[in-house]
C-alpha cells in the first residue's frame, strides 16, 4: 500500500482527519527545510506538501511568491528538493511527501527522469498546479508507472463533468480549493465547501483535502468537520518569512501553529 493510502487508512481507524502543512523547500534557506519537516510531523502533521520553488508561481499569492524568491536566492532547484526528501527519509519512512509546484521545473528534467529520481528519493505524490487533466495524459502514465500519485485540484468553479474527469485521473487525494483566489486569500465559507464536497463525493472514494483560506485553529477545526484533510500553507509561510533572519527558531515556531491546529481538529 502507498504511504498516502496507508496514512488515510490509519487516520480513519483512529477517527481523525489529516493535517497537511505546506512549506516551500529551501525557504528561507536550504538547511531549514528537513528539520522543519521533522518538527511538523512531531507536532501532528500527517502528510507534508513540499513546495518546489518556481520563478513565476502564477496561482499563488504574494506570500508564496516571496517564499519562492527567498528559496531561489539560495538556488534551490528541483533536484535539491529531491535531495531534501531523501535526507528526510533517512529517519522517517512513514510520512507521505507530496511535491507541489509548477510544470516547467519537471519538464526540464523530463517526466521519466523526474519520476525515477523522485521515487528513489521517497516522494509519494505530485501536484503540478498548472497541469490540468486535459494536458496530462503522458504525465499520468509516467507517474503511475513509478507509483507516484498525481494529485489534482478542484475549484468552486469546476463543473460536474470535470469533477468526474479529475476524480478518474487523480489518485492519492483530491485537493479542493476552498475559494476563488490565490493562496493566502481571505476567509472561507465552510457551508459552501461542505456543499461542494458532497457533489465531489458522488464521483470518488478518494480522500478530500481542503486548502486556501485556512489560517487559524478555528478554521482548521471547521474544515476538518467536513473534509478528510486540512491543508494549510500561507499562515506557516508567513511565520517563516517573519523569522527569516532567525532561521533556527523556524521549526519550533511553525510547529506551534501545527500543534494548535492539531489539537483543535482532534478536540
Amino acid at each position: 500500500m502507498s504511504r498516502i493510502k496507508d496514512c488515510f487508512a490509519r487516520l480513519e481507524t483512529a477517527g481523525r482527519k489529516a493535517l497537511i502543512p505546506y512549506v516551500t523547500a529551501g525557504d528561507p534557506s536550504p538547511a531549514v527545510t528537513v528539520p522543519l519537516l521533522h518538527a511538523m510531523v512531531e507536532a501532528g502533521a500527517d502528510i507534508l506538501e513540499l513546495g518546489v520553488p518556481f520563478s513565476d508561481p502564477m496561482a499563488d499569492g504574494p506570500v508564496i511568491q516571496l517564499a519562492c524568491e527567498r528559496a531561489l536566492s539560495h538556488g534551490t532547484r528541483l533536484l535539491d528538493v529531491l535531495d531534501m526528501v531523501a535526507e528526510f527519509r533517512t529517519t522517517d519512512s512513514q510520512t507521505p511527501i507530496v511535491l507541489m509546484g509548477y510544470l516547467n521545473t519537471v519538464e526540464v528534467l523530463g517526466y521519466g527522469n523526474f519520476a525515477t529520481r523522485a521515487k528513489a528519493a521517497g516522494v509519494d505524490g505530485i501536484l503540478t498546479v498548472d497541469l490540468p487533466p486535459e494536458e496530462s495524459d503522458d504525465f499520468i502514465e509516467v507517474m503511475r508507472a513509478a507509483d507516484i500519485d498525481v494529485i489534482y485540484l478542484l475549484a468552486p468553479t469546476t463543473d460536474e463533468s470535470r469533477i468526474k474527469s479529475v476524480c478518474e485521473k487523480g489518485s492519492g487525494y483530491i485537493y479542493y480549493v476552498s475559494l476563488k483566489g490565490v493562496t493566502g486569500s481571505a476567509a472561507l465559507d465552510v457551508a459552501a465547501v461542505e456543499e461542494k464536497l458532497k457533489q465531489v463525493r458522488r464521483h470518488t472514494d478518494m480522500p478530500l483535502g481542503v486548502g486556501f483560506g485556512i489560517r487559524d485553529d478555528a478554521s482548521a477545526r471547521a474544515v476538518s468537520q467536513v473534509a478528510d484533510g486540512v491543508i494549510v500553507g500561507s499562515v506557516l509561510v508567513n511565520r517563516i518569512a517573519e523569522l527569516a533572519t532567525q532561521p533556527q527558531q523556524i521549526p519550533e515556531q511553525v510547529s506551534r501553529i501545527i500543534a494548535g491546529m492539531r489539537a483543535a481538529m482532534d478536540a
Binding site: M58, A59, L103, V129, D130, L131, P132, E134, E135, Y152, L153, L154, A155, T157, T158, D159, R162, V166, V177, K180, G181
Partner: peptide, 22 residues
C-alpha cells in the same frame, strides 16, 4: 479544439482558471 499549435499552446493553468477560460 484544445488550443494546440503542433506541440505548443494548450491550456496550462490552475483548475481555478479553467471555468473562466471555458
Amino acid at each position: 479544439d484544445r488550443g494546440h499549435f503542433g506541440p505548443y499552446g494548450g491550456r496550462f493553468v490552475s483548475e481555478t482558471l479553467i471555468g473562466a477560460l471555458q
